[in-house]
Simulated scan of single mutants.
Amino acid sequence: MRAVVGHTFGGIEALALETIDTPQLAVGNVRIAVRAAGVSFANLLVAQGKHQNRPLLPFTPGTEIAGEVAEIAPGTTTSLKVGDRVCAGLSSGGFAEEAVVDAQNVFRIPDGMPFEEATHFPTIYATTYAALTWRGMLARGETLLVHGAAGASGLAAVEIGAALGARVIATAGGPEKAAAAKARGAAHCIDYRSQDVREAVLEITGGRGTDVVFDPVGGDMFDVSLRCVAPLARLLIIGFASGRIPQIPANILLVKNLSAIGLYWGFYMAWGKSQADAPTRARVRTVFDDLFKLYEDGHLRPVVDAAMPISQFAEALRRVEDRKVIGKIVLRPGE
């Protein structure tokens, strides 16, 4: 089969499209014929050897796929059937024509959902929903500040936050990206290139600040968030797309009664060394039930910036690296 392979960690230039053996099945696994694979900032970190989930060499990037069940390992306990249309989350291996995945991390998708849109669900929408509900306890009527609001994670937070009844304030760089967030449910959009984010948030909230922050960016934007949150606010740490991991002054957490809360979805999917227990793994399935219901009710409209053949994986990754993407770029391994 064809797959993107890295024999060393060295970024995009160290990856190549190769023909390799199909992965072997073990008990508990499902083989998926991959029709679409999502491209993300995390893929760049993996290629550089900087991600917390560091694969063994050689490796194939890709953590979010959609396609059809091609084979189920004998002895696997699952309700899945060959031919089912599914999405799946995996620690690596998605940029390939076939992928072997833990059956517990494979989810049937609605009949009308395109494979390209389905790639948003295994990590992006799932991370966001769990962060806002499980960890952030976002309540109807609260104010949610979303950074990086034109990226896949940010747009997901805007949509889910609005669906949960929050007033969403989005930050993005440039009018086009701000408009994308507004179209997905943001009540207010702040262009951080031309506006002071802190002043804008405080003006919008009447000086009170925001109740919850969804932050996949880190760096300077996290520092700004600390200065425009309400007492008892929850800051959800999702990632560090800016490249800088912020340091949090504990005195600010103390005097404003703040909570800084991390969420790594790989824990819930039992990737790498994660050891999520059976009740936690079962809880994950409820997330997808809720998300697919929101999709079918029209609350979630995944934005596919472009769908590209797998041979153009390097261009897709560079567009993500250069922050030229609104929503998500998707690779089609069959092309």
Rank of each mutant, 00 (worst) to 15 (best):
Arg2Met: 11
Val5Ile: 14
Val5Cys: 08
Val5Leu: 09
His7Glu: 14
Gly11Leu: 07
Gly11Tyr: 10
Ala14Gln: 10
Ala16Cys: 07
Ala16Asn: 07
Leu17Val: 04
Ile20Gln: 03
Ile20Glu: 04
Gly28Val: 05
Asn29Lys: 13
Ala33Cys: 09
Ala36Thr: 07
Gly38Val: 04
Val39Ala: 07
Val46Asn: 11
Ala47Pro: 09
His51Asp: 13
Thr60Cys: 03
Gly67Tyr: 00
Ala70Val: 15
Glu71Trp: 08
Gly75Glu: 03
Gly75Pro: 04
Thr78Phe: 05
Arg85Leu: 08
Cys87Ala: 14
Gly94Cys: 10
Glu97Trp: 09
Val100Tyr: 02
Phe115Thr: 13
Met137Val: 11
Met137Pro: 07
Leu145Phe: 06
His147Pro: 12
Gly151Thr: 05
Ala152Tyr: 01
Ser153Lys: 06
Ala156Arg: 03
Ala157Gly: 12
Arg167Lys: 10
Ile169His: 02
Ala170Cys: 06
Pro175Ala: 13
Pro175Val: 13
Cys189Gln: 06
Ile190Gly: 00
Ile190Ala: 03
Asp196Ile: 13
Val197His: 05
Arg198Val: 15
Val212Ala: 00
Gly218Gln: 04
Asp223Gln: 14
Val224Gly: 09
Ser225Tyr: 01
Leu226Asp: 14
Pro231Lys: 01
Ala233Tyr: 03
Ile237Pro: 08
Gly239Gln: 03
Ile248Ser: 13
Gly262Asp: 05
Leu263Gln: 10
Gly266Gln: 09
Tyr268Pro: 07
Met269Pro: 10
Trp271Arg: 13
Asp289Phe: 14
Glu296Asp: 02
Asp297Phe: 12
His299Pro: 00
His299Phe: 12
Val303Leu: 09
Val304Arg: 07
Ala307Ile: 10
Pro309Phe: 14
Gln312Tyr: 12
Ala316Gln: 04
Arg319Tyr: 08
Asp322Tyr: 01
Lys324Gly: 15
Ile326Thr: 14
Lys328Phe: 06
Leu331Phe: 01
Pro333Trp: 09
Gly334Thr: 10
